[in-house]
Amino acid sequence: MYKILIVEDEPEIAEVLREFLAKTGFEAFIALGGEKAIEILNSDAKIDFIILDMKMPKVSGIEVLSEMRNKNLNHPVVILTGSINEDKYVRDIKNMGYPSMKIVSKPVDLFELVVIIKNKLDLERSL
């Protein structure tokens, strides 16, 4: 079963995502905020996929990505955002040397999100 890490500072949203993913056949667990995500990423936890919120207090989504870059962690990621400032995120992510990354804006169609995750995981597996 694929393990998905949900990085989101709002517990209500994190819980909805976790439950929905659990019902569609994933094992999902939550990092409430960027610092918790970095802690998990630095542990031995098995992670196949990351859903990453951008605007979080203390440690932001961009900082999580930057930490992943430094540690050479190449998990597939989908960006979740409550803002429409996508252009800025696209620029920041590109500047970090990542290829294009899927950005979805809240409120998300969860059925569509699942399709995005499945497609990305299939692609990873075929590589």
Partner: peptide
Amino acid sequence: EVNNPLMSISGNAQL
């Protein structure tokens, strides 16, 4: 700030 509660409402409805 509004998009987050919207996400929560919509997500729960989808659940």
